[in-house]
Amino acid sequence: MNEPQDKVQDSGRRGFIGAAAAAGAGLGVAALAPGLHLIEVAGATSATARAAGEPAPSTVRWGMLIDTAKCASGCDACVQACNTENGIVETVKDARQGSQWIRKIDLKDPKNGRTHSLPMMCQHCENPPCVDVCPTGASMKRADGIVLVDRHICIGCRYCMMACPYKARSFVHQPLDTQNPEVPRGIGCVESCTFCVQRVDKGMQPACVEACPEGAMLFGDLNDPNSGIAQRIAREATTQVRADLKLNVGVRYQGI
């Protein structure tokens, strides 16, 4: 109806919340680095590559915080970045058979018309149903909380896809030849967001987080009380999607 007006209000609110959040985060680490952007704050607490030969530490739990107030409907920078990083190329005719590790969802509350836009991907549950149901143990949770599919022993039964409450998993329906050398993917196996494990292990951010033009995605260690993400979750209201399932997800949302 009066969409233009809505948009103006929306971006105004978004800008305000963004600034407030940045200020808040700045306060949290003010003694260290006042005025830093969120993303750099997060980087400062997580960006150390693990030494060769060392396993993923069980003291760490990787997580992500997504501020939906900053996430614009129609923007899919995170999706594009994910596809490039992980070599996901759409080659099937029926899009329902293609892989989507991350997707943008538009929400509308029918009661009051309020809308949100947000990226949805594997929520990296602490108690992942996919890991519970996998017959071979191919669905697994790494010590640092990242949920992965071990394609060496995935038999392609798709039981995990039946079990996932977030529709986060895709089944590779056709032969592939465009894999990133660091991101193996292949026919007949199930796959999903890995938090860009190949980057995280080098001390980098997931590709989507890095690509978000609004800085709406924050990545870090939920277990480290000094990390940007842990501090914001301690201070601000955040939501777990399908919290009723008590999966204790690693991806948290704000503003929904």
């Binding site: 490039t84 990133n180 050398p181």
Partner: peptide
């Protein structure tokens, strides 16, 4: 599953 080409750059 693994990329058999050396230096292959995925573009998406």
């Amino acid at each position: 599953c693994h990329q058999p080409k050396a230096g292959f750059k995925a573009t998406g």
